[in-house]
Design a protein around this nucleic acid. Sequence first.
RNA 1: GUGGAUGUAGUUCAGUUGGUUAGAACGUCGGAUUGUGGUUCCGAAGGUCGCCGGUUCGAACCCGGUCUUCCACCCCA
Length: 460
Amino acid sequence: MSLKPSIPKGTRDFSTDEMLRREYIFDTIKNVFRLYGYQPIETPAMENLSTLLGKYGEEGDKLLFRILNSGDFLSSVSDDELGNREPAKLSSKICEKGLRYDLTVPFARYVVQHRDEIIFPFKRYQIQPVWRADRPQKGRYREFFQCDVDVIGSDSLLNEYELVKIVDDIFKRLNIATVIKINNRKVLSGIAAFIGEPDKITDITVAIDKLDKIGIEAVNAELIAKGLSQKAISKLQPVLQLTGNTEIKLTRLEQLLAQSETGLKGISELKTLFGYIENSSISCEVELDLTLARGLNYYTGAIIEVKSKDVSFGSICGGGRYDNLTGVFGMDGVSGVGISFGADRIYDVLNQLNLFSEIKVSSTEVLIVNFGEKETQYALKSLDLLRSLGVRVELYPDAVKLKKQMSYADAKKIPYILIAGEDEIMKNNIIFKNMSSGEQSSMLLADLDSFVNNVIKKIL
RNA sequence: GUGGAUGUAGUUCAGUUGGUUAGAACGUCGGAUUGUGGUUCCGAAGGUCGCCGGUUCGAACCCGGUCUUCCACCCCA
């Protein structure tokens, strides 16, 4: 009896073709990160649950994959506790590790743990998978790759500006048209204070985040359901209905939030950031979006989200500033800002827009035909020579029918084959065959390198 | 987590009101062609009908459960 092979829900295998395309995305992103002076780190797939819990809000805690303790994981659980069937309590007793949910929190932990070795401001990038026990959907996986860049140990808004430039640069290289949406948590706090419901900031932001989607009526209804007073809601209306360009919106908002110190701070940050952006060459659209909220708990300043203009599902990139994330690990006064690229969603966007066809996929360039033991000895010379010339070449491992070996080259889209059989050995020759034209050139083995340099290299 | 749909060869899909031996195309393998691929022609292999249980003389088809994938919500990359 054989098991039907399968992989867990929401996870994927990547084929060779997919991997070549994914590597193209990773390489593009990595090159830009390096260009801006960021350096790589990696952290473990699993973290202690104490590191992860409470950083992503209630919803986030539920979505953490927990790792069952090894050995007798029930040793510290009493029969009563088992009988009570309270998953939350029980899991804290039988699990002490979890899979990372994002790269930002492990990074904050890393910074605190290695603060003596780190040179601040610390600019790092990190490209690794993360796991969420979400229900899978289009563009939503349980295992997916994030590509994070963060600067920690600097308050300067130049960092936010640089992130916007990085986003612009990467998507320009990938040929994806995007909109960068920017908001500021301080402004959102200011709004919550202004309408007299400072504690309800999360409910308010979550509700107004949906403004585009469900309309103003439904948003108001949701706010009532969340327990906001009628007065607060009516005070909120002018904020929701702000129109005009960024400058007009910010000026209006400044008047409305005149009483809130935090709100004004947020507005001045936004003004500075947009000032930088206006004076630079940025090709994608950048807009102020007051309805942008972002659920992650730890953001305190700028928040950024990037959407594809042509394909609609969630965002392909998101981030923001967090002032206190290292504080929970015992290191205060260190502010960070960062952004995360969703490689899997970027892949889906490129795929849907058919942008992969233009990418040169690099695979084997020459296949050497295998005719048997004696011929292989002869062919190995060409194999070594071609590789030393930097040509990607492989020798077919078995001496099967020529027809089969050619079909293999065909299926793998290998543009050239090298034939060296009995006849060629006698004349000290080899045959180079162009698979798309069918044209064959016969030459002395000694002339192979000049043929490759003068003819083949110019075509490949 | 809530609600809805889905599952049949490797892949994409047919399959009549429940009725003998579940089909096609593409792909795979073999041959026509023992040293020349893509095209063509001929042939073959490949299925516990997602899984478990129930109803029935009889189930791919009806019922229950379960898992997968997809969609909406929640949330998010």
